[in-house]
Write a protein that binds this DNA or RNA. Structure first.
Lengths: 187, 187
DNA sequence: TCTCAGATGTAGCGGTTGCTACATCCACTA
DNA sequence: TAGTGGATGTAGCAACCGCTACATCTGAGA
């Protein structure tokens, strides 16, 4: 592993821990046992570093979701997906995503296309898991969109709300999705 | 209207336009025809100003959602709510909310309680509208939670995606909600 | 008309930011 | 052994940040 890759991994850990908004080169470098000078030696500029962090974090996230074993039915699949997505690591990755959006990065290159691709493969992973649980292929795309949106919203809204309400909302979502797309061939 | 209130309104406009993340006193003051010196005269410090901006923006948002005329049925209610929520003003207000979350404000006072209260009354407004469209009171709370989460997620995810996919997702949500909680007394 | 408190302008402080110029060190090759 | 190119340390620049000390102005009440 090259020095640049080492630094990228460490910087990603740091960003997942401390967030992306106030990210500053000097404290980050110190935590990595190097200097801001060296960060800007291995990465063209801060933008290059942040892009790399986002890419690294997203790669980890995809690995996690793909590692999820198949679910027995659609309702269970939704609950399993949520359990995976709301785990600590994934949650922090999601937070990075939100912060990047808040920073307005997604409107500018090279973030825009990067994120678009990441989102596409993420949606495909969700859809694949639903198909593995018995959902029709053609339904799984739409269901994945709904699931993803709701998951994102849940993680935004409820960090300080009651976990019980959060759980109930997820169950309602699972029921609704299962009712609508549970058996292949349903309307 | 006191000078402080005038500045609060102007600052809220500015924040809705330019975002909250890079918000800096000097450019803001210049845009308002005053100086950073005066902003910090009328507001204790930047935190005080940002809190006021958030409160002002939220008040406007509540006014809009409460002004929505009743919908004929639950499915239509979801679509109507989405149309309101995804309008430009509301969308910008939502963006402020996201940025505040990304800045980590919601974990600290006085933002935390402020936001909790805002969220409660927001959820009540959504639920009231659903009840007005024929949903049972006891269902409306849960439905409002699901709706709110999905709306938030949709606005996060799809600013750069195809509007068609966004519309389809909202319709799927409306169908699912109507199927599950459409008629009073359903399971 | 004098006074005094609130409003405003000027100037700047101490700190942090991303980034860079420059010198140095080290390992390897001719 | 001389040299060469990549890696690293030192120091600092110019810009910006929130915030403040201090002087000034203005307008209402005594």
């Amino acid at each position: 592993m090259t020095r640049r890759e080492e630094l990228a991994e460490g910087a990603t850990d740091y960003a997942l821990e401390h967030g992306l908004v106030g990210l500053s080169l000097r404290p980050l470098a110190e935590s990595l046992g190097t200097s801001d000078r060296m960060l800007l030696y291995h990465f063209r500029d801060k933008d290059d570093l942040v892009t790399t962090i986002l890419r690294t974090s997203n790669a980890r996230s995809m690995r996690d979701i793909r590692a999820l074993p198949p679910s027995t039915d659609v309702r269970t699949a939704v609950l399993d997906l949520w359990r995976t997505v709301s785990r600590g690591d994934q949650q922090r990755c999601q937070r990075l995503y939100v912060e990047a959006a808040a920073l307005g990065l997604f409107g500018r290159e090279p973030y825009a296309t990067e994120v678009r691709e990441a989102n596409t493969s993420w949606m495909a992973a969700l859809a694949d898991h639903l198909v593995g649980a018995g959902m029709a292929r053609r339904d799984s795309r739409r269901a994945a969109n709904l699931l993803d949106a709701t998951f994102v919203g849940l993680q935004m809204d409820f960090p300080l709300e009651s976990p019980a309400r959060q759980r109930r909302t997820v169950e309602d979502l699972a029921d609704a999705v299962a009712a609508r797309w549970g058996q292949p061939g349903s309307p």
